[in-house]
Computed example of a mutant assay.
Amino acid sequence: MRGLKKQRRIQVVMVATVALAVSAGLIGYAMRDGINFFRAPVDVVASPPPATETFRIGGLVEDGSLVRGQGETITFLVTDGGASVPVTYTGVLPDLFDEGQGMVGTGRLVDGVFEATEILARHDETYMPAEVIDALEEQGVYRHAEDEAGPES
């Protein structure tokens, strides 16, 4: 009787281990295209990713670079102060998208041009994505609003 309980316990542990391994494999397989890494423009220029890699890029829309083409195609430059990357996007831009404002785009780099499939913009006048702030601070372009206000009297 004692041997049967031990054997049953080993079987349950084995089945649970196999189920856990299969679950982890299925989750990894499902997420293979769903994970997009963030890159700053200076990183994209320094080491361009392959055209097959989907990633996110963020920074400021460079002043004077926004060109609305035929139909819904828009081109502009995204910069972090250290480098600029040309971006092309076909679709409707968010309402708060404008030159000099923060943005994050998802897409691929094809022949040196970032072809965006999605563009996100700030949702109010004070918000900027954390990744964009970090990239701009690295280049010395961005300062927090508290820093600009100066010492309190």
Rank of each mutant, 00 (worst) to 15 (best):
Y29N: 13
A30R: 13
V15C: 11
F37C: 06
S47E: 14
Y29H: 13
G71N: 02
I27K: 06
A116T: 04
D147R: 10
D95N: 15
I57T: 03
A16L: 15
I74Q: 06
F114G: 01
P151C: 09
S153F: 10
A51K: 14
G105H: 04
S65L: 03
E118S: 09
R9D: 15
Y127H: 13
G58A: 01
L77S: 05
L120Q: 13
T54Q: 10
A19C: 15
R8M: 13
G107K: 00
A16P: 07
E72M: 10
Q70W: 11
E138W: 10
G140D: 07
F55K: 03
G150P: 05
D124F: 07
V87S: 01
D134L: 09
D43M: 05
V87I: 07
I119N: 00
I10Y: 12
L4Y: 06
V45E: 03
E53S: 09
E53N: 07
G58C: 03
Y142S: 06
G82Y: 05
A83S: 07
E62D: 11
A135T: 03
A24W: 08
T73D: 08
A19Y: 13
A121D: 09
V141H: 02
D43Y: 00
T54R: 14
E138I: 09
A16Y: 07
S153Q: 12
E146K: 09
I119C: 03
E62Q: 15
P50S: 15
D98A: 15
E53A: 13
T79A: 02
R68K: 15
V85F: 00
E99W: 04
L96C: 04
T117Q: 09
Q7N: 13
G34K: 15
E72A: 11
G64E: 05
S153K: 09
L66C: 03
V110F: 05
I133Y: 02
F38S: 01
M128I: 11
V92H: 09
A51D: 14
S84L: 08
G34M: 13
T106D: 03
T17E: 12
V13M: 11
T52V: 08
E131H: 05
E99P: 04
I35P: 01
I10E: 14
P49T: 08
M103N: 02
K6M: 11
V12Q: 13
G112W: 06
